[in-house]
Amino acid sequence: MPGTGAAGAGTVEDGTPAAPCRPGPLWSLGLFRSELGITFRRWRTLVLLAVLAGIPLLVGIAVRIETGDGGAVGDGGGEGPAFIGQITNNGLFLVFTALAATLPFFLPMAVGVVAGDSVAGEAGAGTLRYLLVAPAGRTRLLLAKFTAVLVFCLAATLTVALSALAVGALLFPLGDVTLLSGTAVPFTEGLLRALAIAVAVAASLAGLAALGLFVSTLTNSGVAAMATTVGLLIAVQIVDAIPQLDMVHPYLFPHHWMSFADLLRDPVYWDDLLDNLGLQGLYVAVFGSAAWARFANRDITV
């Protein structure tokens, strides 16, 4: 038929053969923008971000109520959730506390839902095959979807951090930041360290994002993919909490998640931070390759 040919060569109106469609570059900004729009226009995504934004508010109000009569909260040790003991002195510590509180479950659960639904949700809705009719290619489509999930990791982390910063500024004083090593730094440097911590937390979720993407290529059910990804997250965290299995702990993607606290030391302790980034990169390489191998050879029938 004149003027047709979605994947191959067709003819133009004067009867001359049309040029065959050639594969485009591996990266397509238009395809990436489309995936971002699909990801962030979903009501489920907006609800997840709203819930994440509400957690710092709840923590801040709880600390404010508990310390309203001059009482103390937390032990002030400085590791993980113990940041909560510093909130009343400096509202910026609510950022660190909120990230430490949401990282074990809420943030990764949100990422698991988005990553698990990325391919399986399209397949279940019947839209995946229409995406593949266009000359985008499966590799480019999968790369765009994974990049969109990584952007969600950063957006979710920044949502928690910005919400915590706003609540901390409203409910508590702001000022110089005393680091875990006892060094006092200006508030502006504290803000920069908070931004670095947010980026480090987002990077910590990259391995889970790759795992969720792989799971999403295995099924046509978005619900099943999301449940499986979150279930694997819980199972791995349980294994990481069992002392008798300490020999496998360094290879589990959540093991170094709390290493972001080392960015609040002077000098910064880089060992655990680099171990975490290296481990996340390994998970991205392994499960990203597995997702590509599965998706490239998958028979899309729905």
Rank of each mutant, 00 (worst) to 15 (best):
S163R: 04
W27N: 08
P186C: 08
A115S: 09
H256I: 03
A166E: 09
V47F: 07
L31P: 00
S34M: 14
E79T: 10
V201K: 09
P25Q: 11
T4G: 00
A169Q: 02
N89V: 06
L211F: 11
M1F: 13
E79F: 15
A72I: 12
V286Q: 09
L142E: 01
V215H: 00
A144K: 01
L131R: 00
V119A: 14
V268N: 00
G278V: 00
T39P: 07
T219P: 04
V113Y: 05
G80W: 15
A164F: 08
G231Y: 11
A194P: 07
T39V: 13
M1Y: 08
C153T: 06
N89S: 10
V185G: 09
F260M: 02
A224V: 11
N220T: 13
G30N: 13
F214K: 01
A18F: 05
G3E: 14
L273I: 12
T159I: 00
D266L: 14
Q244T: 10
G281V: 05
I197L: 11
I300D: 03
I300M: 06
G168K: 08
P250L: 03
L165Y: 14
V284S: 07
A62T: 14
A6W: 02
V286Y: 04
R41W: 15
D75N: 14
A196G: 13
A194Q: 07
D266G: 10
T178E: 13
A285P: 06
A224S: 10
I87A: 07
D271F: 15
T67Y: 07
N90Y: 06
I87T: 13
M258A: 15
L211D: 04
L171A: 07
W292E: 06
G70Y: 01
T39R: 00
S216Y: 03
V286K: 06
D176P: 13
L252T: 03
E66C: 08
V215W: 09
P254F: 11
G281M: 12
I197Q: 06
A235Y: 04
I242H: 09
S181Q: 09
G5N: 00
V223T: 14
D271Y: 14
I65P: 02
L26K: 07
L103P: 04
T188Y: 11
T217M: 06
S289V: 05
P25W: 14
G207A: 05
T183Q: 15
F187H: 15
G74T: 01
L277P: 01
T157P: 03
I300C: 02
T102Y: 03
L171E: 12
G85P: 04
T4Y: 02
L94E: 00
L29C: 10
A100H: 08
C153F: 04
W43S: 12
A62L: 11
L171G: 06
I234R: 05
T16W: 11
P23W: 12
P254Q: 08
T301D: 14
V302H: 10
L48E: 00
V239H: 05
T159K: 04
A161C: 08
V111K: 00
L154N: 04
D69C: 04
L232G: 01
D14F: 09
I65K: 05
G222E: 01
V12Q: 06
E189Y: 09
A194E: 12
R294S: 15
A290N: 01
A198F: 09
T97L: 13
P254E: 11
V59D: 12
A291V: 06
D75C: 12
M258C: 13
R42F: 13
L263S: 09
P173Q: 00
R33Q: 12
P23N: 10
G15P: 06
G78W: 04
V51L: 05
S28C: 08
A101R: 10
